[in-house]
């Protein structure tokens, strides 16, 4: 993980600031930095999104491929997550340096999406037990400035919203075998229902309080943080504690409540933005990576 050095006196300053609900950049304890979201940024994926949160930048691409359903759930497709840490983000990621963080992030994502409600996996089924859509969700970290989990989850939700899976027609031939035919029309596609896709909220315990969307400096002052994934209804799908420190049961409860509260408020503006972007259609001027 990209870390920064912070001196003792700076830590004291940050700590006292959070106690007074005024963080170094002027935010309160439950404020996010402003977020920029753009979808459809990579043309050779089925769905993609780029999210920048402060100086954190995350790119998510989703590729749909036809695969075999898992034997236990023959009527469902599945999602595969892979997180790649680019050495552009920090030189620490060079070579195999980012592998550990990447695995940790993708394992968390598997847990977050390990339920029936997040994504309607049945809609990914083509023919039971034989063919289904596999969504490969590839996350690329372009810049690290704290709060990777939240940025990644928002980018995934936006990319899933943007995903267009071609429609398939199954026709059986004379010998009883099935043949899959992909639609040629690029507009003839299936969209996913992303209403129940959760967003992750990371709460960092700093001193006696907790903050959301911690910067790297604030992260350096905190010993433990709680990761909660929350749907728009406030349902928690996954909860994890990261960091070496310990948390009081009482503060875990308090942080969960706060996480639910904050997480619920993330969904409405995100959906509104995605729909607004969608309504602009092809007229929208794309910003991409050089804007």
């Amino acid at each position: 993980m990209a870390t920064v050095q912070v001196s003792e006196a700076e830590k004291v300053y940050i700590l006292h600031g959070i106690r007074d609900d005024l963080r170094v950049d002027g935010r309160g304890c439950e404020d996010y930095r402003h977020m920029e979201i753009e979808t459809d940024v990579v043309s050779n994926t089925d769905g993609s999104a780029k999210v920048t949160l402060g100086h954190t930048a995350v790119l998510v691409g989703i590729k749909a491929e036809i695969g075999k359903p898992r034997p236990m759930v023959p009527k469902e497709g599945y999602l595969e997550f892979f997180v790649d840490c680019s050495a552009n983000a920090t030189p620490e990621f060079e070579g195999r340096g980012g592998e550990e963080l990447g695995t940790e992030l993708s394992n968390t994502l598997y847990k977050v999406f390990n339920n029936k409600k997040s994504v309607d996996l049945r809609s990914l089924c083509i023919s039971a037990g034989e063919h289904c859509w596999v969504l490969y969700v590839d996350v690329l970290l372009l810049q690290c400035d704290g709060n990777l989990y939240d940025a990644i989850s928002i980018a995934i939700k936006a990319a899933l919203f943007n995903t267009k899976i071609p429609r398939v027609h199954i026709s059986s031939d004379d010998e009883g075998g099935k043949e899959i035919e992909l639609s040629d029309d690029p507009y003839d596609c299936m969209r996913l229902n992303v209403e129940n896709v959760p967003c992750i909220v990371t709460l960092c315990k700093v001193g006696h309080r907790y903050v959301v969307d911690a910067t790297l400096q604030e992260k350096a002052c905190s010993v433990a943080s709680l990761i909660i994934s929350v749907t728009h209804k406030g349902t928690v799908t996954c909860m994890r504690k990261v960091g070496g420190g310990s948390l009081d049961p009482e503060s875990v409860y308090e942080m969960t409540e706060a996480g639910k509260r904050v997480g619920k408020t993330l969904h409405a503006p995100l959906m509104k933005l995605l729909q607004e972007e969608e309504s602009l259609g092809t007229k929208r001027q794309k910003v991409g990576f050089l804007g």
Partner: peptide, 12 residues
């Protein structure tokens, strides 16, 4: 508390 989300704009 609400998060401020927006589309990126081209920097002038």
């Amino acid at each position: 508390m609400a998060a401020d989300m927006r589309l990126p704009s081209i920097r002038k």
